[in-house]
């Protein structure tokens, strides 16, 4: 079994001194939720429109990533503070309530700022993580999904036969099958553009540089510094997500700076690439196969009728 054998190592320069691993650092603390990334991605990749669906999820009407949405901007309204930001719309403090549950004191009812509650509106643009250990890629039986020379994970539209295996394999709910087309689709990290020395369409459009594209090592360094700055400025909720090469997917090629727990953004808190357990799965499967063989064999012992 060759599972432990890594594919062309995504963390290192490709064979023959290929390009360094490229990725995204999406710093959600400067996102203005404009969704330019969503649209720019659709325009570039000529993705079908995803249908009109008023979700009531704050300003998010895309819902999540899928075959026809490769960038998705999440909107989260919280009764929580952001650094030393003052919003004037927080409700007076009391035991924590979920949003949507009305509380009947008006902001400003109590005197003084100190008694007013907090509020913040988080926005975050999600995308395929281009995992170092990518489950989608691992399980793809056709080789449609493959690792490019930039260390990114790409579906090949001329290969995919729509087996659908990658869909439940992805621990982040990224890749999905397109209705009517049958194939699986997701962010390619603009593989076609990278080849021509261009930046991905989404990061190029982003008005505030919330999406930063570049050499992954450099981005990780920048992110560490950024985290330090935010913590110093009192934004203690800032944390990095996916930048750690020791996490369950061995680090992601697209990582994030978040202001709350990942699950609040619809991200898994501690994803593990499913194929990490595959050797063990095969072992158990082997044992089960032998059990079956033995069981059937045993069935032939004993009385003939």
């Amino acid at each position: 079994m060759a599972i432990d054998e890594q594919p062309a190592d995504p963390t290192a320069a490709g064979p023959g001194g290929g390009p360094p691993r490229m990725g995204f650092f999406t710093d959600t603390s400067v996102c203005i939720g404009c969704k330019a990334c969503e649209v720019a991605c659709k325009e570039w990749n000529m993705i079908p429109e995803d249908g009109l669906d008023f979700t009531g999820m704050s300003f998010d009407n895309s819902g999540g990533l899928g075959a026809d949405t490769w960038r998705h901007v999440a909107f989260i309204e919280q009764r929580a503070p952001l650094g030393f930001q003052e919003t004037g719309v927080g409700r007076p403090e009391r035991e924590p309530v979920d949003l949507g549950m009305p509380s009947f004191e008006r902001p400003g009812d109590s005197t003084g700022a100190d008694e007013r509650g907090d509020f913040r509106w988080l926005m975050s643009s999600d995308v395929c993580k281009h995992c170092t250990s990518a489950a989608c890629l691992d399980v793809c039986p056709t080789g449609s999904l493959f690792r490019t020379e930039y260390g990114t994970v790409v579906v090949q539209e001329d290969i995919c036969n729509g087996c659908g295996y990658c869909v439940p394999a992805c621990p982040y709910g990224v890749i999905d099958q397109r209705k009517g087309d049958g194939r699986a689709w997701k962010c390619t990290l603009c593989y076609d553009r990278l080849g021509d020395g261009l930046e991905p369409a989404c990061s190029k459009a982003c008005p505030t540089d919330s999406i930063q594209f570049g050499d992954l090592d450099e981005l990780r360094q920048r992110a560490d510094e950024r985290l330090g700055t935010l913590h110093e400025a009192g934004v203690s909720s800032a944390r990095l997500y996916g930048e750690d090469p020791d996490d369950g997917v061995d680090g992601t090629g697209a990582f994030f700076l978040l202001l709350d727990e990942p699950e609040v953004y619809g991200l898994p808190p501690d994803p593990v690439v499913t194929t990490r357990d595959l050797p063990s799965m095969w072992t158990y499967a082997g044992a089960a196969a032998l059990t079956l063989l033995a069981g059937v064999g045993a069935a032939f012992f004993g009385r003939r009728r």
Partner: peptide, 16 residues
């Protein structure tokens, strides 16, 4: 078979 070997003709000819 997870990287270069799996690259398809389409991918090889991809251009922006």
């Amino acid at each position: 078979g997870r990287a270069a070997a799996a690259k398809s003709p389409h991918s090889r000819n991809l251009r922006a």
